[in-house]
């Protein structure tokens, strides 16, 4: 049903104002300034020619019961306190259409955090991503807090161990800091060690594709997380074959940390495993354009 044609809806758009609209930006500051001055000083310094009635409204001298000491008070410019002046300045900025409140400064004791908020400010992402991943790999039986203690002990060991002597035949990952910088930043020490021995690829076998039941090997690139996982699994394999030196809960992390130092110094057998995988993957590169693979 179409709406009825009526004159009354037109009235809704009509606004009736009992007073004329003020030009906000121009007069708030002046008005407040006048009020401020009155609070301190009864002498009216602002020109009241423009709005005589309005000023008169707020003049405390006119309020019955209040005294109006005229000459005893100093002049307004010297009597206005710094807070007042600051407030007046802010109002003035408001009047100019500027925002006087810088959110990074005003109202916050230590300012606002930089945006976007860095991930370590989130409770669940407060640790370095490598540390989180490796901690989970250290975990047995779902006991994360034990694994975290182990990780803390590993990092402490790295912090206190002497700077590693890097073997030039086993170069660290490009961009690694010099060896003597590593112990003071144990997280980076760990990251450098793991990234240096991380394999670039894994070799996947396609069963029966090479003919005669033989599997066809193919190199598959790994993502950064996968590479780190593989590297740390190899490190853990080496650690589990090591003999414990002492007793107590700090022995497993000490062995892990020793193996990490060994990796950076090029003594670890993990390097050979990495080399072997790369060698196989290099020879398997020939299969990349294998005809049977294309048919799949």
């Amino acid at each position: 049903m179409p709406p009825r044609l009526n004159i009354w809806p037109a009235c809704r758009a009509l606004t009736v104002r009992s007073r004329p609209l003020l030009n906000q930006s121009s007069c708030i500051a002046a008005q407040t300034q006048a009020r401020r001055t009155f609070a301190d000083n009864t002498t009216n310094t602002t020109s009241s020619s423009r709005q005589p009635q309005r000023d008169a409204q707020f003049n405390p001298a006119l309020v019955p019961g209040s005294k109006a000491p005229a000459q005893a008070q100093p002049t307004s410019s010297s009597s206005t306190s710094s807070e007042n002046e600051q407030a007046i300045g802010q109002l003035q900025m408001l009047a100019y259409g500027l925002n006087p409140f810088d959110a990074a400064v005003e109202g916050h004791k230590y300012g606002l955090p930089e945006l976007p908020i860095p991930s370590e400010m989130h409770m669940k992402h407060r640790y370095d991503p490598v540390v989180v991943q490796i901690t989970k790999l250290l975990m047995w039986d779902g006991k994360l807090s034990k694994a975290q203690r182990d990780m803390a002990l590993i990092l402490n060991y790295l912090r206190t161990s002497p700077p590693p002597k890097v073997d030039p035949s086993r170069p660290l990952v490009p961009g690694a800091p010099p060896a003597h910088h590593l112990p003071l930043d144990p997280v980076q020490y760990l990251t450098v060690a793991i990234d240096s021995v991380a394999p670039l690829v894994r070799v996947r076998g396609y069963k029966g594709l090479a003919g005669g039941g033989a599997s066809l090997d193919m190199p598959i690139p790994l993502a950064a997380r996968q590479r780190r996982r593989q590297a740390f699994q190899w490190i853990l394999d080496a650690v589990n074959k090591k003999k414990s030196k002492g007793s107590g809960r700090s022995m497993f992390p000490h062995r892990v940390a020793e193996e990490i130092v060994a990796v950076v110094e090029g003594r670890s057998g993990v390097w050979d495993r990495r080399q072997m995988v790369h060698k196989i993957a290099t020879s398997a590169r020939a299969n990349l354009n294998h005809s049977r693979l294309k048919k799949r």
């Binding site: 640790y127 540390v131 807090s145 203690r149 990780m151 803390a152 002990l153 990092l155 402490n156 997280v187």
Partner: peptide, 12 residues
Amino acid sequence: EIERAALMTMRL
């Protein structure tokens, strides 16, 4: 606790 918060990379 300050030491844990500032020095330890992880909870010890």
